[in-house]
Amino acid sequence: MDFQVYDIAIVPIIVALVQLAKQIGLSVKYQPVLSLILGVVTGIVYVAPSDPKQAILVGIVMGLAASGLWSGAKNIVQK
């Protein structure tokens, strides 16, 4: 797994995109889901386009890091 240090810079970009979606009107409940989707898409398109397993794994990690694993789970479960 050749994960570059500058790939970590994607996490704040995901956070910024989710915040933009929040300001547009995205519900707090769906913000962690959007973060995870953006992470996986970024993993597939940018980080490891030739290795889908690695891309999905890295994408999940980036999405969870951007949303905050525990706060994201709490927002999804709450009504």
Rank of each mutant, 00 (worst) to 15 (best):
L26K: 04
Q78D: 12
A16M: 14
L26Q: 04
A55K: 04
V58I: 15
I8Q: 07
I8E: 05
V45L: 15
V61E: 08
M1D: 12
L36R: 03
K22N: 15
I10L: 02
P32N: 01
P49Y: 02
S50L: 07
P12T: 06
A65H: 02
K22T: 15
K29T: 03
A55H: 05
K79P: 10
L17P: 05
I14N: 00
I37V: 12
I60N: 02
A65L: 07
S71F: 14
G39M: 01
K79G: 13
I44T: 05
P52L: 11
V58G: 10
I8W: 11
I14V: 09
I13P: 09
T42G: 14
V5Q: 07
V58Y: 15
I13G: 10
G25W: 06
F3L: 11
K53F: 15
L64W: 03
P12E: 10
L17D: 01
P12I: 04
V47E: 06
G68R: 02
S27C: 11
Q54E: 10
A9F: 11
A73H: 04
V77P: 11
P32M: 02
I56F: 10
S35T: 12
I76T: 04
K53M: 14
Q23I: 12
Q31H: 07
L17F: 10
L36N: 04
V47K: 03
K29S: 03
A66W: 00
S71V: 13
L69G: 10
I37A: 14
V40G: 01
L36D: 07
V47M: 12
I56R: 01
V15N: 06
L57Y: 09
Y6C: 05
V45W: 12
V33Q: 00
I10V: 11
A66V: 08
M62Y: 11
V41W: 00
M62V: 05
V40D: 01
M62L: 15
S27G: 06
I37M: 05
L34Q: 03
I24G: 06
Q54G: 09
T42W: 09
W70A: 11
S50Y: 08
Q4M: 15
K29A: 09
S35L: 01
G72W: 03
L17W: 03
N75R: 14
V45R: 03
V61H: 04
K22E: 14
V33S: 12
I24V: 09
D51G: 11
V45E: 00
L26W: 05
N75F: 09
